[in-house]
Design a protein around this nucleic acid. Structure first.
Length: 111
DNA sequence: GAGGTGACTGCGA
DNA sequence: CTCGCAGCCACCT
């Protein structure tokens, strides 16, 4: 783990923690905001490592570009991610965020 | 040291 | 319209 990697992870966490309650964003949007445009996978990996991060990172607010809960199987249980979202007022149907375009939070515009 | 994998995305067939 | 492929980069075997 190099120093820059840690920094990258920290930046990802910082952005994710700024996502307002009841809103969502995409891996690609975060990657683009951090300057690693084509590295959406790294954002996903950062979420994988976010499990033990403090303060906690609301990884459930990060979905893929279609609003699909692609990472739900990385949570404790497969339905935990959806429950967390619905608990915040985000409607989820068939693993898809409803009104995704309306709930989408773009760090490039909001920060 | 080399090859495979993946919480993604965009483009071409 | 759906399906497949290449690019991306850190981690795991």
């Amino acid at each position: 783990m190099s120093k820059e990697n840690q920094d990258f992870f920290q930046r990802v966490y910082e952005v994710v923690r700024r996502i307002p309650r009841g809103r969502v964003t995409s891996y690609g949007a975060i990657a683009a905001f951090l300057g690693s445009k084509g590295s959406a996978r790294m954002v996903g990996w950062a979420m994988n490592a976010a499990g033990g991060a403090l303060p906690p990172v609301p990884a459930h607010r990060v979905v893929n570009r279609e609003g699909m809960l692609s990472g739900k199987y990385h949570f404790g249980t497969s339905n935990l991610m959806q429950e967390l979202l619905e608990n915040e007022g985000v409607r989820v149907e068939a693993d898809h965020v409803k009104d995704f375009e309306r709930l989408f939070w773009d760090p490039r515009k909001e920060i």
